[in-house]
Write a protein that binds this DNA or RNA. Structure first.
Lengths: 200, 200
DNA sequence: CGTAAGTATGTAAGTGCTTACTTTCTTAAA
DNA sequence: TTTAAGAAAGTAAGCACTTACATACTTACG
């Protein structure tokens, strides 16, 4: 017989295994048996901890919806009115996190494509917050006369678009980065183009 | 008995029904029975025209891989060295096409996420061509001294990122456009920021 | 021209495997 | 002794794909 864990630890173990599989193969592409095998337990254990496969998926999406430290370093730069610092911090952190663990980006895309009911909540808590942070920063700097007058939200999404697209191309579609194009250099380029583009 | 069509027409009918379903629900999420029902025939007919479900999916991806007229208007502007015109044409056409028929974007994302073998070919023929067109235009304009010196491919992908991200946000995640933000205005904004950002 | 043979297009009803979820029983910790 | 964590072995439904057979269109031959 297998090691006996506390319910909480076992539950976490199931979630960890499921995150990996759902993010790689989607909800419909993942078998509950695979999850059980990956967690080293029997299928029945999954159903002791989660009512349905969909319930497990929802639990994951909700857990991944907590906002984390991504905004912290950007907020510091924002306080010091370091425009390039704000953008650099956001871009680099996003890329770094996604390269280290692409499961979040994949889960987000899968849940939207597959039309999961929590996809919207997922988007609101993970993406919208970032958009709002940057757009209100831009709005403030427009008021201060440092940036040109423009739709701050659309503009902010434009910047995130450059970063997200970079991740799509390299992490999802698997395009190889030529040696001259490190993430850091790409972010520098995006920041410089974007800043020069919006400054007065 | 149902109407008797020519093999070619029937095949096309199956493909049409399948495109709609695969783009909405993905490969794994689509049942062959659903495709048959949507096409108004029996499952066996699918298997008379395609060896396997996967074969049908591959046929669709290959068919969708043909490059179309997207580059035409941009090429005209490129010839006249109308920088804003090039970017505007690319951005507007991409948005217009995707809004009219989102199936292509969804198929592309699904095939990459689900790891379909033809996903790479799909990407190369649909996406890479655009990247190459714009990056070689940018490279030329750098040589002519109109744009700052920078990595043309990364820069070009930055512009497409703004457009693609706009489509992801509105077409995939279903964020409502506020009335002030029409696609046309958004493209104008992206073009203006991007151009000002890369010009000397 | 008329018609029977041959062929392509179609269907209804499977077949066997997979899958989400259940039931029943065992074992170890408190 | 009680209770919850665990395994083994189902079950019913769903799935890609097949089989056996019917019907319409085409064509060669009298």
């Amino acid at each position: 017989m297998k090691e006996r864990l506390s319910a909480e630890k076992r539950r976490q173990q199931i979630v960890d295994a499921a995150v990996e599989l759902f993010s790689r193969k989607g909800f419909r592409g993942t078998r509950t048996r695979e999850i059980a095998e990956a967690a080293g337990i029997s299928e029945a254990m999954i159903y002791r901890h989660f009512a349905t496969k969909r319930g497990l998926y929802s639990a994951i999406i909700e857990a991944k919806s907590v906002t984390e430290e991504l905004l912290a370093s950007a907020a510091t730069a924002a306080h010091g009115k370091d425009d390039a610092g704000v953008l650099r911090a956001l871009g680099l952190k996003m890329i770094e996190q996604t390269v280290r663990d692409p499961s979040l980006m994949r889960l987000l895309l899968f849940s939207a494509l597959e039309g999961h009911e929590l996809s919207e909540i997922f988007f609101e808590s993970r993406v919208k917050k970032l958009h709002q942070f940057l757009s209100s920063y831009i709005r403030k700097r427009i008021k201060e006369g440092r940036f040109r007058s423009m739709d701050a939200l659309v503009t902010a999404r434009g910047f995130f678009g450059m970063i997200v697209h970079y991740l799509l191309v390299h992490e999802l579609f698997g395009v190889k980065r030529p040696p001259r194009s490190s993430p850091k250099k790409a972010v520098e380029l995006f920041v410089s183009v974007f800043l020069k583009g919006i400054e007065r």
